[in-house]
C-alpha cells in the first residue's frame, strides 16, 4: 500500500507525493462511502413512499417524499402502545442501568487498585473471567430466578443484569486509576482524609474521563440490547425500542415499511448523537483497554 508504517516525519517518502496522496484519499473515501452506505440507505428509505422503497432500492434520494407520513405513522406505535412508551422504557432502563452499573464499577475499581484487601487478586480474576462466559448460559436460570422473584415483565429485570457493574468498566476504570500517582492517596491521608473521602473527594472528580467513557458504552449496550428484553418481557407496554422494532418487522402484525424504517432511524438517533458528541472518549476508552467496544 502507499501508506506506510511509522511516524518518521523527517524522512519524506516518495508515496507522499501528489499521485500517492490522491490514491490514498480515493481509497479512503470509497471505503468510507461503503461504510456509511447502509446508514444513508436507512435514512433515505425512512423518507420514501412505501412503494418506492423497493422499486428504487438503489437510490439514496426519494422521488416522492413521505417524511411526515412515515415518521408519524411509525410513532403511533403498535397494538395500542405508542412509540413514546417504548422510548421511555428504553431510556429508563438505560439510564438506571448505566448510573448504578458505573457507580458499582467505580467502587470495585477503587478497591482493586487502592485498597489492599484479602483475596483481591482472586476476585479480580473472577471479574475478568466473567468476560469469557457467554450470557446465554445464564439466561435460562436467570429467567427462572426472575420469575420466582416476580420481576419478569418489569423494567427491573432489564436493568438488573447491568446495575451491579461489569468487567469491561471495572477494567477500564482500574486502568485509569493505576495511571494516577499513588502520592495522591498519601497526601490525602496526611490531610486526614479516610479512604472513602479520598474516593469521593479526589478520585471521583479525577476519574471523570474514564467514568464518562464507561457511561457512554454502557448506555449504548443497554439501549441496543435485544436478547434479554426478548426473553424477559412479553407485555407490549414494557417493550423497549429494539423489541418494538422487532414487532414492526413481523409481517403478520405490521406491514408499514415506511414506519419501520422511520422508527429504526429514531432508534439510532441517540446512539449517533452520543457518538458525535463523545467520539474522543470512545476512541480513548477502546485504545486504553484494548477490549472491544
Amino acid at each position: 500500500m502507499t501508506a506506510k508504517g511509522m511516524p518518521a516525519p523527517r524522512i519524506v517518502s516518495k508515496s507522499k507525493g501528489l499521485p500517492g496522496s490522491m490514491l490514498f484519499h480515493a481509497v479512503c473515501l470509497a471505503l468510507g462511502f461503503l461504510m456509511v452506505y447502509p446508514l444513508l440507505w436507512l435514512l433515505a428509505s425512512s423518507m420514501k413512499n412505501g412503494s418506492e422503497i423497493f422499486t428504487t432500492a438503489l437510490s439514496l434520494w426519494p422521488k416522492t417524499w413521505a417524511v411526515f407520513e412515515n415518521y408519524s405513522s411509525g410513532w403511533r406505535g403498535i397494538g395500542g402502545v405508542g412509540f413514546e412508551t417504548f422510548m421511555l422504557n428504553s431510556l429508563i432502563v438505560s439510564v438506571v442501568g448505566t448510573v448504578l452499573g458505573v457507580a458499582s464499577s467505580l467502587m470495585a475499581a477503587y478497591a482493586f487498585t487502592r485498597i489492599k484487601f484479602r483475596l483481591s487478586g482472586f476476585w479480580f480474576a473472577c471479574v475478568m473471567a466473567t468476560l469469557m462466559i457467554p450470557g446465554q448460559v445464564m439466561v435460562v436460570p436467570q429467567y427462572i430466578i426472575f420469575r420466582a422473584l416476580g420481576i419478569i415483565n418489569t423494567l427491573v429485570s432489564l436493568a438488573a443484569p447491568w446495575m451491579f457493574g461489569s468487567a469491561f468498566f471495572i477494567f477500564l476504570i482500574a486502568q485509569f486509576f493505576r495511571g494516577l500517582p499513588i502520592e495522591l492517596d498519601e497526601a490525602a491521608e496526611m490531610d486526614g482524609c479516610g479512604k472513602i473521602s479520598t474516593l469521593i473527594l479526589i478520585y471521583l472528580p479525577l476519574s471523570a474521563p474514564a467514568a464518562a467513557t464507561s457511561c457512554i458504552f454502557s448506555f449504548y449496550w443497554i439501549w441496543q440490547d435485544f436478547f434479554q428484553p426478548l426473553i424477559f418481557i412479553n407485555d407490549p407496554k414494557k417493550f423497549t425500542v429494539p423489541l418494538a422494532l422487532n414487532l414492526y418487522t413481523d409481517p403478520n402484525s405490521y406491514s408499514n415499511y415506511g414506519g419501520l424504517f422511520a422508527m429504526s432511524v429514531v432508534s439510532l438517533l441517540p446512539v449517533v448523537l452520543f457518538f458525535i458528541l463523545f467520539q474522543k472518549h470512545l476512541v480513548e476508552g477502546i485504545a486504553t483497554t484494548g477490549l472491544k467496544g
Partner: peptide
Amino acid sequence: ALYRTFYYMPSILSGSIAVSIVWKQI
C-alpha cells in the same frame, strides 16, 4: 480523523436491531 469516524461508526451500532433490518433489505 474524518475517515476514522466513518469507519468506526458502524461498530458502535453492533447488535442494533435497526442494522439487522437494513441488512435484510440490502
